[in-house]
Design a protein around this nucleic acid. Structure first.
Lengths: 336, 336
DNA sequence: GGCAATCTATGAAAGCTTTCACAACCCGTA
DNA sequence: TACGGGTTGTGAAAGCTTTCATAGATTGCC
């Protein structure tokens, strides 16, 4: 193992000054082509790799962006992370990903970590809304964009889908296709309250429509199966004629369960609609109607806001951006 | 926005020396409790956040680990990343995730980036085996563990599932349950060659078994549907009686397609087995038999090797660790 | 040839931490 | 009292880069 080779060794080897090497690294155009070549040759020969830690230290922070999601194993977040990563890469940023796994401690630990790393900003899908930890972060002036529409727009930028609108659209669609006894399945409640609120509104608007709630502990396939089994145990005449699942994973689980029943068909007897439009939604046995969240748009806007907030000259004002989601009709809510 | 507060300001405010503050930060036990309290109070009051960049610079690299996967959107890699992250966190490491998206350029860019960040080591699922870029990295002495069993064990540590064994197990299982005309679906070929090799061996061992190949351009649900449609277009008596898909995504797509056919039932007419045991595999319409890869074990071992390689005192010798995968029998290969 | 105006190169300083040789101090004992 | 030994605190140096004021070289023009 040789001595670590830094800018100084390169300068010496190439017979130029430290400053010149630095200029080469940073593509400053004042460098003579003769020097440029000498330096580049030396770098190659010595196997020089710029030390980004020193660079960032000197420059007072780099262009890394911290991302905290609720759970990478959830395809929606995996896709979102993917979109963010692609978008960030295009802007020369790097994303560090942390998965809080729905654990407040982990969330806080990642925030601490990112702060210590002097990230340029953070994108956070907060677990319990705005915690004291987050406020403290904010008061220190760190750029933060939340994926949480309940955040105080005076204090934070946030970018989200309009869950109320999505809930409304989904439920409205069920009603429009002739459904009357609708079940909303999802939980824990705080996380799905907007979608539920939208659903309620749609139900209230139409006479003769009832909306009931099956609360789940989580939004997973396994929980979905439990919900499905629950519904199967009801007497056929008691069963709902439509289910609005708070996300696609849940919907997939419900579908799994319902499809095993002989005396019940999706969508003929029960319509099913999900939320998120994960890649699998189009590939389930009965392709799933759902609400699509334009992940690329969210990703782009979140990064734009973060960039703006990080730039003191921009006259940035916090804003809450609500994107309106889109109804995707597939077979699981097919015409009755 | 106040002046950035560093260790120096804290020291001054608390009336102690810089060294003492550093000792507090690093939990050196020689600090008097009186001083400890003073320093901690000052930190709190000033809102001090340790600058990890300077710390890492001084210490010659931190404890961040770079991870390059082929594609985060693939549930297998998402789960693996998740497992690695959990394991790393337990050891006080942090994972930086990069997704190469099957693009050699991106792979190289991430490697460069990680090198500049002076990561403690890298975990890489290489696209095309060991590229010159990787060898150069190695020759520089950076700890690297590959997820690629074709890597030269003299040069690299690698951790993988035994794809040949997995391919053999899957095919053997199909044969044992009475199947004779087996199709292996997967591609591009280099990525699935081991699984195919295992399948071939199993087929050769049994008289009367034929194995044919449908090569795909990718291992996605969409490609799987294409494969399924292809099979449906064959005359019933020409169709295979079993399909071994090179991964679960592909299998899911195939299943989607086959299930639409009236004259064909899975598993009665065609058995189907996948590979990876992604979370969805148990949740498909006909729950999918598959080969499980013990992700947690891989994650643990990969990090252990990396740690060992990073520690010069360990007398580390490169090793290829092949984990034997496990056959998971579900309904898609149900008894004939 | 002489002078100003450009252009390029130089290298010390700064950015924030950890490290470590050394100083200061305390206590008990000869 | 003087001294040894142990404990705690100190602050300069180092780690590698970028920045920037300054020096030096070159060109153009009268």
């Amino acid at each position: 193992m040789n001595k670590p080779v830094g800018i100084r060794e390169v300068a010496e080897h190439a017979g130029v000054s430290i400053g010149t090497v630095s200029n080469v690294l940073n593509h400053v155009k004042t460098v003579t082509s003769a020097n440029l070549e000498k330096v580049q040759a030396s770098m190659l020969e010595l196997g020089f790799v710029r030390n980004d830690l020193a660079r960032q230290l000197r420059m007072g922070g780099g262009n890394t962006i911290g991302l905290v999601v609720l759970n990478v194993a959830n395809p929606f977040f995996a896709d979102l992370a993917h979109a963010l990563e692609a978008e960030a890469e295009a802007n020369g940023h790097t994303i560090i990903l942390g998965s809080s796994d729905q654990d407040a401690d982990r969330e806080n630990r990642y925030i601490d970590l990112f702060e210590e790393q002097r990230v340029r900003g953070m994108l956070i899908a907060p677990l319990d809304g705005v915690t004291p930890r987050l406020s403290r972060l904010r008061s220190r002036g760190a750029p933060v964009v939340l994926f949480d529409s309940t955040a105080d727009p005076e204090q934070f930028c946030s970018v989200t889908l309009d869950g109320t609108a999505g809930g409304y659209m989904a439920t409205r669609h069920l009603i429009d296709t002739g459904r009357r006894r609708i079940v909303f399945a999802g939980g824990p409640l705080p996380q799905v309250s907007e979608r539920l609120a939208g659903a309620s509104r749609a139900a209230r608007e139409s006479a003769g429509v009832t909306l009931s709630l099956i609360e789940t502990g989580d939004l997973t396939v396994a929980e979905g199966r439990i919900v499905g089994d629950q519904i199967l145990q009801q007497r056929p005449e008691e069963r709902p004629d439509a289910i609005f699942a708070a996300n696609d994973l849940l919907a997939v689980g419900i579908l799994q369960s319902l499809i095993l029943a002989e005396d019940l068909k999706v969508p003929d007897d029960i319509a099913l609609i999900g939320y998120d439009d994960i890649d699998f939604a189009a590939s389930t046995m009965v392709p799933l109607s759902t609400i699509r969240q334009p992940r690329e748009l969210i990703a782009r806007e979140a990064l734009r806001l973060l960039e703006e907030e990080a730039d003191p000259a921009s006259g940035h004002v916090h804003a809450r951006h609500l994107f309106t989601p889109e109804l995707i009709v597939r077979e699981s809510t097919g015409p009755r």
